[in-house]
């Protein structure tokens, strides 16, 4: 568990994200530089944007394996969501497998001319306020009313400026909770919650599925009767030019879909059992060949 938290924060480092372009040697294969007339060179590179969220890794690895089978090189660049969308828009990145909607609507609006939602991956991603299972009396956000003291009047969220940070503030206001949201990062939030759960103290934080913390910690998403947290949809987002540059990849991605359970099971293998992400993905591809074949366009 700690390992995943550590990796998460290490990677979620915004600073790291900022310099990621400089560090990643694969970036010199910027997609728009690569196509110099060679229609089907077979050596084109498809660049995947990878956010530090655990949910991004499995679908990205699976898609990368398939795209490599189609004869392309792939590269993965780590950055936080904002930078991934900026990279997609500028053409440095071609594909992002983990676009969350409506949470990421603001990015799609900002870059509507250059990026598009290509396929619906799954539409039953849960998100919301999370408390430990040992808090028997708290089953909905309303149950927190009047109990804010025991939570130290604090709610733990992810980064300052993330779209869900505003939503959490709205929740606090709408439910008239006497709480302040403390923002840090995914890893920071989880570490703080774990610290408090160590001594079975009350704690409320933001959570979403798929996420391995639901396997590692006894926690529950509590009800939200006022509809702040509907199930999210996860889409594949691509740069507009991908359809021209690599039509077969584009078609494969537009057929993409993957079960939330499948993704969570891969996350657990990667994080719980410390297995190599690529290896887990390869195994999955092998076992689900039929499903993959249905997504791949027929030759000519």
């Amino acid at each position: 568990m700690k390992k995943s938290v550590l990796t998460l924060v290490t990677t979620s480092a915004v600073l790291a994200a900022l310099t990621a372009c400089g560090e990643n040697e694969d970036v010199d294969g910027l997609s728009d530089e690569v196509d110099d007339g060679d229609d089907n060179g077979g050596q084109e590179e498809i660049a995947f944007g990878v956010t530090p969220w655990t949910s991004t890794v499995p679908p990205t690895e699976v898609a990368a394996i398939v795209v490599e089978e189609m004869g392309y090189d792939t590269a993965q660049t780590e950055a936080d969501a904002g930078n991934v969308y900026t990279g997609l828009s500028g053409g440095d990145l071609d594909v992002f497998m983990d676009g969350w909607f409506p949470v990421h609507d603001n990015y799609i609006e900002q870059y509507e001319d250059t990026i598009e939602k290509t396929a619906l991956s799954y539409d039953d991603a849960e998100a919301g306020w999370v408390v430990p299972e040992y808090m028997d009396d708290i089953d909905s956000i309303e149950d927190i009313q009047g109990e804010e003291d025991s939570f130290g009047n604090e709610f733990y969220g992810i980064e300052e400026g993330a779209s869900v940070t505003e939503v959490n503030d709205d929740v606090i206001e709408e439910y008239e909770l006497d709480m302040t949201q403390v923002n840090s990062s995914e890893g920071g939030m989880i570490a703080e919650s774990m610290r408090l759960m160590e001594s079975e103290e009350p704690v409320a934080f933001y959570g979403w599925r798929p996420h391995s913390k639901f396997y590692e910690l006894d926690i529950k998403i509590i009800d939200d009767d006022r509809g702040f947290f509907d199930d999210d949809e996860v889409h594949v987002v691509t740069n507009n030019e991908l359809a021209d540059q690599a039509p077969d990849v584009y078609e494969f991605l537009s057929n993409w879909s993957m079960d939330i359970d499948e993704i969570e099971s891969m996350i657990v293998e990667i994080e719980e059992e410390g297995r190599d992400a690529r290896e887990v993905a390869e195994e999955w591809v092998e076992e689900n060949r039929d499903e993959i074949d249905e997504m791949i366009p027929e030759d000519e």
């Binding site: 924060v9 480092a13 915004v14 994200a17 900022l18 936080d80 969501a81 904002g82 930078n83 969308y85 900026t86 603001n106 990015y107 900002q110 980064e159 300052e160 400026g161 993330a162 403390v182 923002n183 840090s184 990062s185 920071g188 703080e192």
Partner: peptide, 18 residues
């Protein structure tokens, strides 16, 4: 990033919202 208030969170806010 570890929840300290201040100018850093303005910068972080700016970064994550592009």
């Amino acid at each position: 990033m570890i929840g300290a208030p201040g100018l850093g969170s303005i910068v972080l806010n700016g970064i994550s919202q592009v």
